[in-house]
């Protein structure tokens, strides 16, 4: 999370005076369920990347084609849209066959 500024440091009028400041916003703190990427089941269709409402799906380009890399938990809010649109993920499939598994965040707390 970016450091909170005091009223003397802020631009007036609630104006955001530069573009792309959402990059500084750690929306990952909102997450209560966490998507787990299981690369061996992924067909790299990019649906998760396309539908992700934030910037939490990381991809790379290999031989001119996009490849799903995994989730960025700094931004991932745990909305589950990625798992919902994933053609390799549904409730009927056993967890080990899914490309994305949603797990409660409590399982990852120390």
């Amino acid at each position: 999370m970016a450091e909170l500024k005091n009223w003397k440091e802020l631009p007036i009028g609630g104006v955001i005076d530069k573009p792309a400041t959402a990059k500084e916003y750690q929306t990952g703190t909102w997450r209560v369920i966490r998507p787990i990427y299981q690369a061996e089941n992924c067909i790299h269709c990019m649906f998760c990347w396309l539908y992700c409402p934030d910037q939490a799906v990381e991809i790379e380009v290999v031989d001119g084609k996009p490849k799903m890399k995994g989730f960025n938990y700094y931004y991932c809010k745990g909305c589950g849209l990625c798992a919902n649109v994933c053609p390799k993920t549904n409730d009927k499939l056993p967890e080990e066959k899914r490309a994305i598994v949603m797990k409660p965040e409590t399982e990852f707390q120390e």
Binding site: L4, K5, L10, G14, V15, I16, K18, P19
Partner: peptide, 20 residues
């Protein structure tokens, strides 16, 4: 110099903008 007018301004900043 692109800027954003009227963004959502919740409990973390609204008060500071009122003080301004």
């Amino acid at each position: 110099n692109p800027v954003t007018y009227g963004p959502l301004d919740l409990y973390d900043y609204y008060f500071e903008h009122k003080r301004q």
